[in-house]
């Protein structure tokens, strides 16, 4: 039971990185990203391949994060003016592209077989591997949280929020909105890649089917449930989504009248209903 709790916490933490990243893009700057899983996957695979080749944990994490950011910047630059409608299509398309490349290019990362034997960082003395990993994840997440919170509160966050509200105003005060949007997108992608590195390290095995569109949807749900712009709310709602998704697995032991497949569907239904309820409460017409 305690092991299971630790696992949920680690998963929540991993999704936390991805959601914090999406929160910079979508919550703060208003850049929709329907394919955040792509950058998560880039981070996961980069970390997996590097650390299997003997690159130390921290260095592999850093390279995975950076490379995801580079991919983010590239996607941003391929999207004309980073307009919302283009962005929705490009990000969704890019995430499927990444998944299909990983699936079909065997030479790159094992194709459908994925990558196995991804190492974890060394455990702390006297602590188990799971607990150690939880601590490392929590430390990294604390750093990511500190970073995004500062972004929110610093002048740069003000400019990003201004872009979300009215890009023309930002232009009229002499600032290059497109440059800020590109940076925001890059940062969000890098954070997703950071989450991906932890994901690969934790599971020790990754394969393309783990990087389907549902990952993007879960983090979109987390950011939507959170206040869209606040790192605190984003992390809390990520924990909520993780608890909903993972926690309902616990029900298996208590609910005997549904089987595993039905339970999986039930889980998504619960998430869907929770989303609808929250959106109805939070986005009532007439509320700012």
């Amino acid at each position: 039971m305690i092991d299971y709790l630790i696992a949920i916490l680690i998963f929540a933490g991993i999704y936390g990185f991805v959601a914090l990243g999406l929160n910079i893009q979508w919550g703060l700057t208003g850049l929709i990203n329907l394919g955040q899983v792509a950058f998560f996957a880039v981070g996961a695979y980069t970390f997996a391949l590097l650390s299997k080749a003997g690159v130390p944990f921290l260095l592999a994490v850093a390279v995975a994060t950076t490379l995801s950011g580079v991919f983010g910047a590239a996607v941003a630059m391929f999207t004309p003016r980073l307009r919302e409608d283009y962005l929705a299509i490009v990000t969704l398309g890019f995430s499927e592209f990444v998944r299909l490349v990983l699936l079909n290019e065997k030479w790159l990362a094992g194709g459908p077989d994925g990558v196995a034997g991804v190492p974890r960082p060394a455990s702390f003395p006297g602590l188990g591997s799971e607990t150690s990993f939880l601590i490392v994840t929590a430390l990294a997440l604390a750093f990511a949280f500190w970073f995004t919170r500062r972004i929110e509160r610093y002048p740069i966050g003000r400019t990003l929020k201004a872009i979300r509200e009215d890009e023309g105003v930002v232009t009229s005060v002499g600032k290059v909105a497109l440059a800020y949007k590109t940076k925001a997108f890059l940062l969000g992608a890098a954070l997703a890649g950071l989450g991906g590195a932890f994901f690969a390290s934790y599971l020790s095995y990754i394969s393309p089917d783990m990087f389907g569109p549902n990952v993007s949807i879960y983090v979109l749900a987390a950011v939507l449930i959170g206040a869209q712009g606040s790192s605190v709310a984003t992390l809390l709602s990520t924990a909520l989504v993780a608890a909903l998704l993972e926690g309902t697995r616990l029900l298996k032991d208590y609910i005997t009248f549904v089987d595993g497949v039905e339970l999986a569907a039930l889980r998504l239904m619960v998430l869907g209903l929770a989303l609808i309820a929250i959106v109805m409460v939070r986005y009532r017409p007439g509320r700012p």
Partner: peptide, 14 residues
């Protein structure tokens, strides 16, 4: 929002 060349407007300031 207005002042130009704000140091705090750069990512690295964070």
């Amino acid at each position: 929002l207005v002042p130009e060349r704000q140091f705090g407007d750069q990512v690295r300031s964070v």
